[in-house]
């Protein structure tokens, strides 16, 4: 058996090991890399920048811990941006784990010195409405009455008792909707029901696998922008001038992509060499 035949039949455990090293090793180095920003990410950033102080932003957490590496940095950078601009944040989830993911992101951001100094209060500056079963029908119900879809918040407090919810009835009273999604229900349902049906201004953060599916919506303006995968999170951090986890993980992701490309080239060389 020649060299290239042996190369074609390489034990996949060797590939697994190399991939593992390529991903894990760079995480131990704090290498700052240049991150190019793209128009689709700028779209979300610019809408948030354009909102006046006190505007209401609805953030839907539609993912679970499996997608945390990609979506949690997006959530954190978005919260940071909103709070630094004194926007009011309303959190909800179409996935049962979503509201808990939101609390994790809040724990991080609310303890950052500049945000902590603002002395933000639950129920006044931000609120977590929790999860309601019903997938896209929840969005449909919110279109006529948010209070009917979420009678109480995550902790059981009636919505009418929360100052932040005063004057909010449906999407007409929400200035921007931001959806963090890893599948169904997610961005597609928000586009179909909140954006198309009720004309909500919508932006999204998706996993890298899901983001390409949403590009048609960004091209038509149904989405003001998309953050795709960890690169999207890194771009947002760069735009907000607050590099954090997204930017830091770019080194690891870059090396991992390069190793996969190396394998593709190697596989093709061996394939053609063996006829």
């Amino acid at each position: 058996m020649g060299f290239f035949e042996r190369l074609l039949k390489i034990d996949r455990r060797i590939i697994f090991t190399l991939i593992g090293i390529a991903i894990a090793l760079p995480l131990f180095f704090n290498v700052s890399m240049f991150v190019e920003t793209t128009p689709v990410v700028k779209g979300v950033y610019e809408v948030v920048e354009s909102l006046p102080e006190g505007s209401k932003v609805l953030v839907s957490f539609d993912y679970d811990p499996g997608s945390m590496p990609e979506l949690q940095p997006m959530a954190e950078s978005f919260f940071r941006h909103c709070f630094s601009r004194n926007l009011k944040v309303i959190i909800m989830g179409l996935w049962p784990q979503g509201p808990l993911q939101a609390n994790w992101a809040l724990d991080v951001i609310l303890n950052e010195p500049d945000i902590k100094a603002k002395n933000l209060r639950y129920g006044v500056n931000y609120v977590n409405l929790g999860y309601t079963a019903g997938n896209e029908v929840v969005i449909l119900r919110m279109g006529s009455n948010i209070h009917a879809a979420f009678p109480a918040d995550y902790y059981g407090t009636p919505l009418d008792d929360l100052p932040i919810m005063k004057g909010i009835r449906n999407f007409n009273n929400i200035d921007f909707v931001y959806n963090l999604s890893a599948g169904y229900p997610g961005t597609m349902e928000w586009v179909q029901f909140a954006a198309d049906r009720f004309h909500a201004v919508l932006g999204a953060g998706n996993t890298a696998v899901q983001a390409p599916l949403m590009y048609p919506y960004a091209n038509t303006g149904q989405l003001v922008g998309i953050l795709g995968g960890m690169k999207g999170a890194a771009e947002y951090e760069v735009l907000a001038d607050r590099p954090a986890r997204g930017v830091r993980y770019m080194f690891s992701q870059g090396i991992a992509h390069a190793v996969v490309i190396f394998f593709v080239i190697l596989g093709n060389v061996a394939y053609f060499a063996t006829g």
């Binding site: 390489i10 996949r12 590939i15 697994f16 190399l18 991939i19 190793v259 996969v260 394998f263 593709v264 190697l266 596989g267 093709n268 394939y271 053609f272």
Partner: peptide, 11 residues
């Protein structure tokens, strides 16, 4: 993905 790209991604 790494393993599949090596074995299946052929021109």
């Amino acid at each position: 993905i790494g393993s599949a790209s090596y074995r299946a991604f052929r021109a």
